[in-house]
Structures are given as C-alpha cells and as structure tokens.
Amino acid sequence: MKLDTAKILQKRKKQILELWMKNQLVDFSLREDLMSNEELTVQSEELVDVLLQALSDVNLDDIHSIALTPVHEALEGISISRAKQGYSPRETGTFVFSLKDALLSILQQEIKNDPVQLLEESLKISKLIDSLGIVTFETFIKGREEVILRQTDEIAEISTPVIRVWDGVVAMPIIGTLDSARTQVVMESLLQEIVDTSSNIAILDISGVPAVDSLVAQHLIKTVSATRLMGAECIISGIRPEIAQTIVHLGIDLSGIITKATLASALRHAYSLLQLEVRKSAVK
C-alpha cells in the first residue's frame, strides 16, 4: 500500500500549526521585542500553507523540485526580514527546524502502526526541512550582508571630505564604489569647496576605489569637466597598476585628463602648475 504523506499532513494542518507555534513559544529565545505573537502566527501560518500546498504537488523525494519555489520564496522573505530586524541566526534557524518536530510528531501519530513506513517518511520530511534550513541561512546571511553594505554606504557618504592640502589646492580621497548617487555628492562638495577656498586645482584620489568600469570612468570624466567649467584644473591620482591595465583593455580614453599614480605626484604636479618649488633648506 502506498501512503500519501502529503494528504495526511494536509488533513492535520491545524494541529501542525498549533504544535509548531507551541514549539516556538516555549523556546527561550523567542523575541517578543522584535515581533508580536500575532505576527509570528501569521508568518508561521503562511509558511505552513505554502509548504503543504507544495507537498501535494511534489514528490517528497525531490528536494530540488521547482514546485518548492513558492516555499523557498516565502522562506527567503521571512529570513531576510528577520536578518534586518536583528534576529540571531539561532532564532531564525529554530523557526524552521522546530517545524520539523511538529511535522514528525503528527506523522508519528498517523503512521504509528507501520514503523518501516514511518521511518521512511520521517527521513524524507527531515531531509526536506534540512534543505529549507540551508535556504534560510543563505538568505539570512544575504540579508545581513545588505545591512552591512548599506552601513558602508552611509559611512562612505559622510566620509567624503575635501581637504585643503595647499593654498589653492584641494584634494578629495574617494573610498569605495563610485555609483551615480555617490558621484553627485562628490561633485557637489568638490565644486563647493573650490568656490569656498578659491582654489584652482582639485585632486581626486581614487586609491580607495576597488574597480573602475565604464560607468565609474564616465563619472570621473564628468567630474573633471565640471571642475574645468569652474575654471579649475582637476588631477586624478591613485591609479593603481591593475586599474591602469583594466582601463586600457576596457578601451576607455582618459588621455584628456591629467592622471597620476600617487597623491604625492599629483601634488608635485600641482606645485609646478602654481610655479612653486619644494626644496630642502640649505644647511647652515
């Protein structure tokens, strides 16, 4: 006789959910500060719904089936939001794994007369939930990474200082990626500083920019043009060897721009433009 596990579980949906909720609520790590019990119930119910729905369409053996896509999506949504709300991995993991306990106890009640079947079906359920656990962790970490990236972004935003390195010379070190929004900030503060300090040379240092693709290059070219429109000269420094080679292969033409390998050589160039000379003082 072939057993239809999906049907059995579908029939006992209410009990599964109750049991799962009970499992979650007794867990000492439950974070009522982050989510109310009602919200948790809604989230749990949603997941049980899509899971049981998917199980009726899918062969339990096949944990890679596309019928599981809605389950993965629901789980991804839940774990991303948990990562952003500040849940720990343990809390998020418990959420998924405590469902296993609930499903297994129901199976145990339903197939208690056939230990062989019970074992077989339990193993399948177990494997399925484990695979869901992996999805959960992957997305949880992705959620965390996004939080980190956003923070990095915010830090970058507030730390794009314009430095007066000499009378009439301002420098701006850029750290991190140069996307469109960032370019806007860079350009505005650089141009403002040129006005405020009546400088006629600006140095844009890109030592801290990890890669220069065609978009970043266009942003740099725009910034240089805008500086020139203000009557100042703009030097780009901090072109590392690997960046130089990449720019050449990519085919970007920076020949109209003064570029230097280091901030020091840019500064030296600025001095020569200002007809200044730096010399060792004569020994007395």
């Binding site: 890669a211 220069v212 693709d213 690997e242 080679q245 990449t246 990519l250």
Partner: peptide, 17 residues
C-alpha cells in the same frame, strides 16, 4: 592575482550592469 582579479571584476561589473 590582483591584475586578473580586477579585470574579471570589471568585466563582470559591465555585464551585470
């Protein structure tokens, strides 16, 4: 190496954009 890394990342950056 760093040069090849940078080339790969830059190419990938173009294609993903």
């Amino acid at each position: 190496g760093l040069v090849n890394q940078t080339k790969l990342i830059t190419a990938a950056s173009e294609l993903s954009r």
